[in-house]
Design a protein around this nucleic acid. Structure first.
Length: 591
RNA sequence: UGAGGGUUAGUGUAGCGGCAACACGACGGGUUCUGGCCCCGUUAACAUAGGUUCGAAUCCUAUACCCUCAGCCA
């Protein structure tokens, strides 16, 4: 695949088993016996029936069969969760199999990245790491057997002729002039294909089925083609490679897969899947198709993802805006959030577009329970507490996570000069703006009530500093006289805070269904990333590890960038904002 | 217009001849030292037309619309 960027650096955090939240620690088991959990989808119904009838002697063996020609994305995660989840719930096994039958496109870089992603998602294929290329010898043998049974032939037509003779959706195809070669001649020519006597493109092995079949897939499909290319695993051992339709069903058969689950676009291929296995009279798994995932405001087709990368619309496959597993990981998504998302969207056979808000809900839900809260000011506004002593600071205690008291508390320092968020002050506040304004009193989280006494502006009239007074009696955040404030603001002490870069991400596209746009580039969101510098963080945030996830109070969930965060130069990614009532009100007020 | 799939609130799923349910969203309220979380409430759907049946989202027949297939890709 052209244009792919280099692998992400091997960051030890990424596959640290302690951080990947292995599936066995999942609180909610989606066991088949657990009817209080999510409703059963149609594939579970099928498997239940097969278990009841003893169709596969109670075995459930699935497989996830990626072609190593690109990075995995959230759509693959759906398939991974499905296949590995089924195996887990039915005490079966799920194989990871690289469908590596096209050496022109495939690459070890991808096989490594794919394994890392599947593992990171929390799944384990145990000893069942397989490659279709492991079966090249057996596959060749099956092809020979098919020829012997009079069910395959070597066709000397070129690609153009084959295409022309295939017919159309409404017209039948016509037989190849080479269709009725003798078994002996076919065997001989196939052997010669294998030994490299023919140039690429001069001939192929075809199944002998029916050129008038209403299902075009069945019009003598190609089984083997000549490719004089080194393969990433078999090197120069082969110059013929099997096609998907031949290799896939037989690989499933060889591995004694029970339920071969794939996406809907392979429905038409199922007839051929069944034909090949029947023609060879070998073990026969059943293929089941489900609808692939579509996500609003994003694209998931391999071609379009490649073009995002190669046209430099994003920084690489792991750009935090990408819907790839590596992109989501770098953005700060957790494996559990992705798994829960996949469970929520369930599995069905109808085309659909899942609202990206559901993905965002999943990560908020997870991080709300687990992420420590910290204070960070993205767009600092200087605040001077005029009645607070100079060169003095106070240590106050802050709760790490109100959702989880076990996460304890921490000490933070309060002093005369602080930063608050620019958005938390308005000189002329509209209705329903509860935050700071001239003369108004608010609470600084865990610290004191402050009142804005003076607004300092620069020549252009921009507010550059606030003078405030604080009420020493409100230390800790509550007034002894019981008076209330309508807002609590986050803040960072100027002398103690650390500078940081923070990257704010939005959807990559401005429209719900970018795939349908005539021109891709027209619907790209120009503001999909906003890089903020000079942000002020609570000191502890400068001493984290890359990948660390936390909540910046009142702002959203953030994570220390896997690639760029250092303690000398902290860089945080915004994973997702918090739900924001005020943003909605503002929007309504504008309208 | 050949063949094969599909169509249930805004979105995603459940239902399998007997009260159309769940989640997300939206909207309103309560609570709150995060305009977060949490809690309560409201909104809103069986593509259409016939038929079978005491009774149909479910079974049957038509129709409409959507998706997939004409790679020596997977």
């Amino acid at each position: 695949m052209a244009g792919s960027k280099a692998n992400p650096p091997q960051d030890p955090n990424k596959t640290d088993p302690d951080k990947t939240d292995p599936i066995k620690t999942e609180p909610k088991e989606t066991n088949k016996d657990n009817d209080s959990a999510v409703p059963k989808h149609f594939i579970r119904h099928i498997i239940d029936e097969d278990m009841a009838s003893g169709k596969y002697d109670g075995r459930v063996v699935t497989r996830f069969p990626p072609e190593p020609n690109g990075y995995l994305h959230i759509g693959h995660a759906k398939s991974i969760c499905l296949n590995f989840g089924l195996a887990r719930d039915y005490n079966g096994q799920c194989h990871l199999r690289f469908d590596d039958t096209n050496p022109g496109k495939e690459n070890v870089e991808y096989v490594d990245a794919i394994q890392e992603d599947v593992r990171w998602l929390g799944f384990d294929w145990k000893e069942h790491l397989h490659y279709t290329s492991d079966y090249f010898d057996r596959l060749y043998g099956y092809a020979v057997e098919l020829i012997k049974r009079g069910k395959a032939y070597v066709d000397d037509q070129d690609a153009e002729e084959i295409r022309k003779n295939r017919g159309t959706l409404t017209e039948p195809g016509t037989n190849s002039p080479y269709r009725d070669r003798s078994v002996a001649e076919n065997l001989d020519r196939f052997e010669k294909m294998k030994t490299g006597e023919f140039a690429e493109g001069t001939c192929v092995l075809r199944a002998k089925i029916d050129m008038a079949a209403p299902n075009i897939i069945m019009r003598d499909p190609t089984l083997y083609r000549i490719r004089k290319l080194d393969h990433h695993r078999t090197a120069s051992q082969w110059c013929i490679y099997p096609m998907y339709d031949f290799a896939h069903c037989l690989s499933d058969s060889i591995e004694k897969i029970t339920h071969s689950i794939c996406t809907l676009e392979f429905k038409n291929n199922r007839e051929l899947y069944d034909w090949v296995l029947d023609a060879l009279e070998v073990y026969h798994p059943q293929q089941i198709e489900f609808a692939r995932l579509n996500l609003s405001y994003t694209v998931l087709s391999k071609r379009k993802l490649i073009s995002l990368v190669s046209d430099n619309h994003v920084s690489g496959w792991d750009d935090p805006r990408m819907p790839t597993i590596s992109g989501l990981r770098r953005r700060g998504y957790t494996p559990a959030a992705i798994r829960n998302f996949c469970e929520r969207i369930s599995v069905a056979r109808r085309d659909s577009v899942v609202d990206v808000a559901l993905l965002e809900h999943s990560i908020r839900e997870d991080l709300n329970k687990t992420a420590p809260r910290m204070m960070a000011v993205l767009n600092p506004l200087r605040v001077v507490i005029e009645n607070f002593p100079e060169d003095h600071s106070e240590v106050i205690e802050a709760v790490n996570n109100p959702e989880d008291p076990a996460m304890g508390t921490r000490k933070i320092e309060f002093s005369k000069i602080l930063y608050i968020e620019q958005d938390d002050f308005m000189e002329a506040p509209p209705k329903k703006f509860f935050r700071l304004a001239p003369g108004r009193e608010v609470r600084l989280r865990y610290a004191y009530f402050i009142t804005c006494t003076e607004v300092i502006k620069d020549e252009s009239g921009r507010v550059v500093e606030l003078r405030c007074s604080y009420d020493p009696a409100t230390r800790g955040g509550d007034a002894p006289d019981g008076r209330k404030v309508k807002a609590t603001l986050h803040w960072v002490s100027a002398v103690h805070g650390v500078d940081a870069e923070v990257r704010l991400y939005e959807n990559l596209f401005t429209v719900e269904n970018p795939a349908s746009a005539e021109n891709f580039a027209d619907v790209l969101n120009e503001n999909s990333v906003q890089v903020l510098t000079g942000c002020k963080l609570e000191p502890g945030l400068g001493k984290r590890d890359p990948g660390h996830q936390c909540q910046f109070e009142r702002l959203g969930y953030f994570c220390a960038d896997i690639r760029d965060y250092t303690q000398q130069h902290p860089v945080f990614n915004r994973i997702v904002t918090l739900r924001d009532m005020w943003a909605k009100i503002k929007k309504q007020q504008k309208a």
